[in-house]
Design a protein around this nucleic acid. Structure first.
Length: 420
RNA sequence: GCGGAUGUAGCUCAGGGGUUAGAGCGCCUGACUGUGACUCAGGAGGUCGCGGGUUCAAAUCCCGUCUUCCGCCCCA
């Protein structure tokens, strides 16, 4: 409680032992599904040279503008805690010559990201993401593969009520032409905005499409759409992607409001949204970033990827009642001091069979040990007592119903009870 | 960064100026000298988020601050 001298910093969370199995299960599942598609795990430093993120995300992006945890290290270098996963993964791939022409590179990761924001439910200053990147293909099949990967992972978890929101924001040149067009449309409105709103709108008017403000929503109602001015190539890609997603059984809807906040996206952008998250509706987001590798000093390399918020995913799982059943309880060995050695030996055998075995540490009475077994959620208490050892058996009590039998420790009968 | 709520026992919450601040659940001890969970009887645990102010008197009113939550911004 608040008497504590220290507490977790604002917008951060501790992961406690009771919760960690859920994370481990998700991570195992994600690793499995990625591995099955040929994606290998990559781990990169938690901080990078600040310039990497400025270059990749863009000066005008919200992330770079006001959300980065940036500091100067003792050597005078500007360092930034990773705000997103894509740029570091690509930096590493480039640095270690993993990017080769004609050879698609598939990577997945689990990262912590840091963004200085006002915390809300599902929005933290340190949050975790799964992500996958498919580097080196400009085929719409690559876009589809990545979206299908995210979608398959989520739907395999049993999640309902998710929608894939798809859009295309075209090539850079198309976008800057479109930007002018859009600015012209909103000019009258822009005139009487606050300094801050105006600066934000002018920096990236596309973002207005995503606004939840009633007035802006109305303003954007009859705004021109970038979908209508796409270059032929972009149009072809979009059509091919839509067809491929249909073939893969991914349910998607076209949503011109999906514009994304990072400057590196080109053509395909998408979010996967859930109604269970309130204002932070996106559980996953990504898209194509054909210019990014070049931007950070590599060869032109068309690529596509996504990130997925783990805390948000857990919130959705909880909201949909998909909380996994707790792992089966441990086996508690009840004994008195003179039988301790035998109990420890038996505990070793139980552990060797892959089960959890626990003994008392504090010299409790038999009763005290039984009580402890109960509080630890034990499935069985195995009692090594005077009577039993005289007869070469142990008592086995099933805690759920209180039934009790005897068996010779290590016998087939013993193990068949333990594993039931 | 802007606007609005919130904080009382380990947990969920009641109490909205007046002697020692409550409930349920949880926890501890005993009834039970080899048996938990059930039942019964006891018990421990709170500088009422923190700091300041008003008052004879503050958990209660005022100001500040921190946390969490909601909306905006933005995103995962």
């Amino acid at each position: 409680m608040s008497r504590n001298r220290f507490s977790a910093p604002r917008g951060t969370q501790d992961l406690l032992p009771a919760e960690s199995p859920r994370w481990q299960a998700l991570q195992a599942r994600f690793a499995e599904i990625c591995s099955a598609r040929g994606y290998g795990e990559i781990r990169t430093p938690i901080f990078e040279e600040t310039e990497l993120f400025v270059r990749s995300s863009g000066e005008t992006s919200e992330v770079v503008g006001k959300q980065m945890y940036t500091f100067e290290d003792r050597g005078g270098r500007s360092i930034t805690l990773r705000p997103e996963g894509t740029a570091p993964a690509l930096r590493a791939a480039l640095e270690h010559r993993l990017i080769q022409p004609g050879l698609p590179l598939r990577m997945w990761y689990l990262v912590q990201n840091f963004r200085y924001e006002r915390p809300q439910k599902g929005r933290l200053r340190q949050h975790h993401q799964f992500g996958a990147e498919l580097v080196g293909s400009d085929s719409p099949l690559a876009d589809a593969e990545v979206i299908a990967l995210a979608w398959q992972f989520l739907s395999d978890l049993g999640l309902k009520g998710l929608t894939v929101r798809l859009n295309s924001i075209g090539r850079a040149a198309t976008r800057s032409a479109f930007r002018e067009k859009l600015l012209a449309h909103i000019a009258p409105w822009l005139a009487d905005q606050t300094e801050e709103n105006r600066a934000r709108a002018e920096a990236n008017p596309l973002r207005l499409f995503d606004s939840k403000d009633q007035e802006i929503a109305e303003l954007m109602q009859d705004a021109p759409l970038i979908l209508d001015v796409l270059e032929p190539e972009s149009r072809v890609r979009q059509a091919a992607l839509e067809a491929e997603l249909d073939r893969l059984g991914v349910g998607w809807t076209l949503d011109p409001r999906i514009v994304r906040g990072l400057d590196y996206y080109t053509d395909t952008v998408f979010e996967i949204q859930s109604g269970a998250l309130g204002a932070q509706s996106a559980v996953s987001g990504g898209g194509r970033y054909d210019g990014l590798v070049e931007e950070i000093g590599g060869p032109p390399t068309p690529s596509v990827g996504f990130g997925m918020g783990i805390e948000r995913l857990l919130l959705i799982l909880e909201a949909e009642g998909l909380v996994p059943s707790p792992p089966s309880g441990p086996i508690f060995l009840v004994c008195q001091a003179q039988d301790r050695a035998a109990a420890e030996a038996l505990a070793g055998e139980i552990r060797g069979r892959g089960q959890t075995a626990i003994l008392d540490l504090d010299g409790r009475s038999i009763k005290g040990q039984m009580k402890l077994a109960d509080r630890l959620g034990a499935r069985f208490s195995v009692i090594l007592g005077e009577d039993e050892s005289a007869r070469g058996v142990v008592s086995i009590k099933r805690m759920a119903d209180g039934s009790q039998t005897e068996a010779e420790p290590g016998s087939d009968e013993f193990w068949s009870i333990m594993e039931s």
